[in-house]
Design a protein around this nucleic acid. Sequence first.
DNA 1: ACGAGGATGCTCT
DNA 2: GAGCATCCTCGTG
Length: 207
Amino acid sequence: MGILQETYFAQNSVTVARDLIGKLLISEHEGNRLAGRIVETEAYREDDPACHGCGLRDEVSGMLRQGRGVELYGPPGTGYVYLCYGMHWLLNVVTEPEGTCGAVLIRAVEPVDGLDQMRKRRAAARREVDLTNGPGKLAEAFGIDRTFHERMLTRPPVYFSEDRARPESDIEQSARIGITQGVDRPWRFFAAGNPFVSRGTPSDQRS
DNA sequence: ACGAGGATGCTCT
DNA sequence: GAGCATCCTCGTG
């Protein structure tokens, strides 16, 4: 009921990233229900130097080479989960039609359900905002790891859904965070004023 | 409140 | 060996 389907994720990554703000991320893994309202996302696209998988298509033959990020050309709605800095799992959902490279990174959510289990998984979190105010943190809180890589996120146990109780909030836009390439593209979206938005600084404002 | 530095593993040169 | 879509701890003000 209200689960976002493959046709939804088949849109332009930037469109999906903006529209996912206010939607719910839900996990029914291991008998617990966890839910979070998405408050921060980033879009990654083909012909985008920050995107894993950029440059895998041979310009002459049109054929795909193997390499990191080739999964981003796969079916929309697929999970793309990878290890960042050797320690943190980051959750993406594959976007754009199959055969086109793209993904949306889920950077932060506001906890809605299952906070007790989130606290157990996030032992380092002293304040409630630290449960899920960053891409590595929310993945840990939700128990997302490599076992969700290349799994469909259009049905349980992990999926996205509409939010009936979706609160009003303005959506702001900025450069993406933590990247050194593609800094000029304002493809980060976040809910204005929401305390669960991550602490990162947009890449075009760093010294 | 804020910034520096370290942890840690995978991919590509 | 360098470079990473990060997070945590421990300094200093």
